[in-house]
């Protein structure tokens, strides 16, 4: 069983995940960021694979992706960086990228590289469920990789049930109909949506993302779901204060 699935079994509440773009702010920061987040209370880490055309991402992650690409990041470099932290016993890592990166790298080679780095969970927002079932499920399974699906306020109950069935790690609950980096608090409408999902008694753990930007939104999300993911707010923090200030960020969320 993967380390992440193990963790999700033992810890049910206030699971804290942080997203960052590999190779940002500097090319060689990837490993440092992973280590810092791990030692400062983050439960699992999403490593973003910077892409030229990140459809589901707002301006912040577009920016960090563009900087990282300019820094010279690519999948070969990322897998080298991840290999280097493998023995450090960090928090479980989840890779988040776009399908074309996997296609071009080679699906089999991508899975092989994940295995070498101890990656057991991936999020590919533009890989729809039907494509996953038809073309990726068996391959991922043979490498012990589980795929994370997203649900949104528009996802039907029937489809959520199906996603729940197919989920091994967690369901990524997109907080609102928006791209990443949404600002502002959590609205009554969003809370009604969280309550609707919660009332479905799904077997999978539910982690909220998109628009979780500070302690307040993190806490509210955790009141209804098993945990939450912070992305754009962390990127903005890194951009402003740098890698060395990471404990300040995690304290601000988790204290």
């Amino acid at each position: 069983m993967s380390a992440l699935i193990e963790l999700l079994k033992t810890k049910q509440n206030r699971l804290c995940s942080v997203f960052f773009s590999a190779g940002f702010p500097k090319l060689e920061d990837t490993a440092t960021i992973i280590k810092e987040l791990s030692t400062n209370g983050v439960d699992f880490i999403e490593v973003g694979l910077p892409y030229s055309d990140p459809l589901a991402d707002g301006t912040t992650i577009q920016y960090s992706s563009a900087v990282a690409l300019k820094n010279g990041i690519n999948l070969d470099v990322i897998f080298e960086q991840l290999k280097s932290v493998k023995k450090e016993n960090t928090a479980p890592l989840v890779l988040m990228g776009y399908l074309n990166q996997v296609l071009k790298f080679g699906e089999e080679k991508f899975c092989e590289s994940c295995r070498e780095c101890g990656i057991e969970t991936v999020i590919l927002p533009d890989l729809p469920m039907i494509e996953y079932e038809n073309h990726y499920k068996a391959l991922f399974a043979s490498y012990g990789i589980s795929n994370v699906f997203l649900i949104t306020p528009q996802t039907s109950d029937e489809r959520i049930r199906k996603i729940d069935e197919m989920t091994e790690a967690f369901i990524y609950v997109v907080a609102s109909s928006s791209i990443t980096g949404a600002k502002g608090g959590i609205s009554d409408g969003q809370i009604a949506y969280f309550e609707r999902i919660k009332a479905m008694n799904l077997k999978s753990k539910l982690i909220v993302g998109f628009g979780i930007s500070n302690k307040e939104t993190f806490d509210t999300a955790c009141d209804y779901m098993n945990g939450a993911i912070i992305g754009s707010a962390f990127i903005n923090f890194l951009d402003e204060k740098g890698v060395a200030a990471i404990p300040e960020f995690t304290k601000g969320i988790l204290a």
Binding site: S52, D53, N100, Q101, L103, K104, F105
Partner: peptide, 19 residues
């Protein structure tokens, strides 16, 4: 072969799939 704007097609891309 690659994916752009929701469709699998022929796509101008670099060796890492960046468009």
């Amino acid at each position: 072969v690659g994916v752009i704007h929701g469709s699998k097609t022929i796509l101008m891309q670099d060796e890492y799939g960046q468009i």
